[in-house]
Design a protein around this nucleic acid. Structure first.
Lengths: 191, 191, 191, 191
DNA sequence: TATGAATGAGTGTTCATTCAT
DNA sequence: GATGAATGAACACTCATTCAT
């Protein structure tokens, strides 16, 4: 875990790591390159993180926390389901498109030998509000009565792919496209 | 006459590689482990594949070809759009759930430093019938008039996540669930 | 501050390499053995030299420079030709007999796949004073009017073999022998 | 040792080996490449030679024998010393310039880990007539009274270098040059 | 704390040699 | 005998981690 010494360095390390994972996946990720990218000596990295595994798991939690903050900062549970669903859907897509590294990292993390079960569980707990919202939609009979897991597949599968499509850069995603994608997702789950 | 080069060995190598990628991602993929898993000496690997990069790209093409065969073996373009769409959707899911390694490998491949542009292009060409089918659906005004790329995000995003869900093993996907997922996908794109 | 890069290590590596080439030629030259002989970890070698090729070419230049220094450190172009010729001839032989590894290395280097043309050219430029001296001898009509290349064959061929003879150890080369050899060389070229 | 089965193959193997040593030294010498160059399967090589070491030592003896044959085929011990010396000197140079691979191979052989003492001794015995001739010259007081080893250094050092010079190809060695070189060698040793 | 040289186990790959055909 | 696929020990080189400064 990062010591409180220099929070800026921790962030620099996270960003360096994300940049490199974006470029080459976990396979090309070398501690020395992370250090260089973060403008640190290799040894300094090990002051902040015990080893590579810890860096990666800490980064995972950092990303999950960041994403959650950005998803929910102006979220009000008292708003209507439909309003909240729409807000959240667009938030997920916007955040993902702004920081595609996050999604890429996640994808690789789940299949890596670095993953630690408790970090994973901890990270996933952070997005429980998403599950709660969908539960509420079901309770209010606004969306289909289908296991949450499947609804999440449907919704996040589509948004993730959309983020990838944007990141690859061969297709320019416009406002109109976003509305069309949202419409499809809504049509998919609505009752 | 010496022993003849053995096509079975190529398949054994592919399967060993897939198994290992499934377990640990590309990061944990070691040529010596592939050899051991395929019950070969390390050197033998290099008779069949020049290097790791070539193995991975060849495997990518193999998977794409296999998938395509399984998707389309009894496919008839003269059937109705709706019938074909349904058949293809289920085929994609069934194949994916039977061989989740394929999807996992693909995911990692696209972010790896091994990817060779021309292999990628070649592989992607194989699934053009999917694009053609959706094009036809649009022409017949049965599905929404939205760029193909977005329709594909919506559909394959969802099926990929479903395959992952199945593969993780924490949620048992039943026939009923499949029908529900299909319904969502269809509702998402239908006109 | 970390440890500073250590010039002594470079020398230690050179000496280790020379020792091993002397024993087994380039064929038996292994980076791990060089490291062990120089009392370093394998990886340390690669801090100082990018790869084996670079080590070998750097060592070639080092040897050429060392030899040149030793040949010419008290050399004065204003002395008479005969005096200079004699001094240089004995210097070449003394240096060669003191460090037979140098000659052995050179021999192998020229036939190795490691040789880089520009290193070779650079190294050969260092001994141009030898050529200049012989040119002067020709101009002063003290030695035969024969292409320099042939004079050099005659002279260095003999000295190299003498060095080999000494190095093999089956024949003890004395002062008297040296004088005899010098006499032969001089008789060979003198006008 | 080669079995008597197919003498042509043995020669083909020798020539292939020589060609490859000429190109890259012993370092680049691979049994599989020798086989390919000799238009044989790798395994076939091992029918004729037990291993690499044996091939190299057999080849050494082959070369020494060939050279000797070519040096002495029309040699008559009853001719005068001077006539024989001249004939032999030119023979050595001609043979060396015609087959520079021989000299290159020898050079590398003596510093390789493949060398076997008894092969070396056996090979060197073959050129004893050279020693005998010089002994006779000394007895007849035609050449300097100097240890044979030194005379050989002087003479063969120069011829070897001349052969190298020719082989490198940057200097065209003419008849006139040969006469000049011979003159130098003779002046070096004559009484 | 920060540095980056040093370490050495581990990786991809080669190649002498064997062996099934 | 001839073949060339198979083997696996070894080698060049890398990189996570340590440690002297």
């Amino acid at each position: 875990m990062a010591r409180a010494k220099d929070e800026n360095k921790v962030i620099a390390i996270y960003e360096a790591t994300l940049k490199l994972v974006l470029e080459n996946g976990f396979t090309g990720l070398k501690m020395s390159k992370v250090a260089k990218e973060a403008k640190l000596a290799t040894g300094t990295l090990y002051i902040y993180f015990k080893d590579k595994e810890q860096l990666i798991n800490a980064l995972y939690l950092y990303i999950k926390t960041e994403q959650t903050k950005q998803y929910f900062w102006d979220y009000s549970e008292t708003d209507s389901f439909v309003s909240n669903f729409r807000k959240l859907w667009f938030r997920v897509v916007e955040v993902g498109m702004k920081q595609p590294e996050y999604a890429i990292f996640m994808e690789q993390y789940y299949r890596s030998p670095f993953i630690k079960e408790d970090s994973k569980v901890q990270g996933e707990a952070l997005i429980s509000p998403v599950y709660q919202l969908l539960e509420r939609g079901k309770a209010e009979q606004l969306i289909k009565d289908i296991p949450l897991e499947l609804l999440v597949c449907q919704l996040l599968g589509a948004t993730n792919e959309l983020i990838n499509l944007h990141q690859e850069g061969n297709f320019k995603v416009t406002k109109v496209h976003l509305e069309a994608m949202f419409k499809m997702s809504w049509d998919a789950i609505k009752n």
